[in-house]
């Protein structure tokens, strides 16, 4: 653990996919930091590279066609990109775990849930069969699965979606990870169940001092859970701030657009505003600022130079922004 409380720091991470169409720059220079014990929310539209970033961190980019081509992923003082596959296997599920969007398919259908949790525990903690089973029951109890002694021998198809996501969380938590990557953990669930799952993650986090990297496209979820927020667009972070600062004073035209498109943030009686256009293809990003094709403030400068991610002067600490017109954006 580095002394400054940083658990995870991404520096210029680049992950490209190669296909016959060419090179898709899915993640193209991503920087963000996750402090120990905190939650970092990563928001952005589908295809902006938020999931690919997370998969790059845990080393699960399918290769071929994908490849991490540059940057550094600092985790507890080590650059994860330099570790061997074997070293990564020891970290995965143990120090870094991950839960996914689709609890319906993320569990192996032909093994009992107990079996799958026990596998994780035995992989990393070297427990005996009986101890591992006890641990699995504890974990199921921890995620509030009723009657865990009986449920442990059930198969995934016997559980509801919310229950399965709880099982996924139990599995992810079974080795007390330092970092939990949650990739859209509530997207596939009912709204009431969503709240329960978020509450559960928050509750577990406060008990264990674990950090959470929460990937979502739902700003409401971010508002409820995140300490810091990274807004991603077209493979880059365009704005990074504390949740408080971001919600109080979003500065990037894209972030502002995201808020405008939500009913919660629009003035009463006002129409919701969609961001015009679509996310550019990762094969052909526009020159300069990648958002300029959809941006109301776009100028010639935006097409010429790509705005760097720099601190915003008149905002809270650590608020960074990649826009040539930080002042003008305030007037939007």
């Amino acid at each position: 653990m580095s002394a400054d409380g940083k658990l995870l720091e991404l520096q210029g991470l680049r992950t490209y996919f190669y296909s016959e169409e060419g090179e898709a720059r899915a993640v193209d220079g991503v920087d963000y930091t996750l402090m120990k014990g905190e939650t970092l929310g990563v928001v952005g539209e589908s295809g902006c590279g938020k999931s690919v970033t997370a998969l790059s961190v845990i080393g699960l980019i399918p290769s071929p066609p994908g490849k991490v081509v540059g940057g550094k992923v600092w985790f507890k003082g080590r650059n994860l990109l330099e570790l061997s596959e074997k070293e990564m296997q020891e970290i995965r599920g143990n120090e870094i775990s991950m839960i996914f969007q689709e609890p319906m398919t993320a569990l192996n259908p032909v093994y009992t849930i107990g079996n799958q949790i026990i596998e994780t525990v035995r992989l990393h903690q070297g427990l005996g069969k009986e101890e591992a089973r006890q641990r699995a029951i504890e974990m199921l109890d921890l995620v509030h699965i009723p009657n865990p002694e009986a449920r442990i021998d059930e198969y995934p198809h016997q559980l509801s979606g919310g229950m399965r996501q709880r099982v996924m969380i139990a599995m992810a938590m079974s080795c007390d990870p330092d970092l939990l990557i949650a990739d859209e953990p509530t997207t596939a669930l009912d709204v009431t169940v969503q709240a329960q799952i978020l509450e559960l993650i928050g509750d577990l986090q406060s008990r264990t001092d674990m950090s959470v990297l929460l990937i979502t496209h739902d700003l409401g979820v971010i508002a409820e859970t995140a300490n810091h927020v990274a807004v991603m667009y077209a493979g880059k972070v365009v704005e990074y701030a504390t949740a408080v600062d971001l919600f109080a004073k979003p500065r990037h035209p894209y972030t502002i657009g995201l808020f405008r498109s939500l009913p919660d943030f629009a003035a009463p009686g006002e129409r919701l505003q969609a961001i015009p256009g679509i996310v550019p293809s990762a094969f052909r990003f526009p020159s300069g600022c990648r958002f300029r094709t959809r941006c109301p403030l776009a100028s010639e400068q935006c097409a010429r130079e790509e705005p760097p991610l720099v601190p915003v002067e008149d905002s809270g600490e650590g608020h960074t922004l990649a826009c040539h017109f930080p002042e003008e954006a305030l007037g939007l």
Partner: peptide, 14 residues
């Protein structure tokens, strides 16, 4: 290509 394979990899299976 199924999801449970990624889950298995994410938990550190060989």
């Amino acid at each position: 290509g199924r999801d449970y394979i990624i889950t298995a990899r994410a938990k550190g299976s060989t």
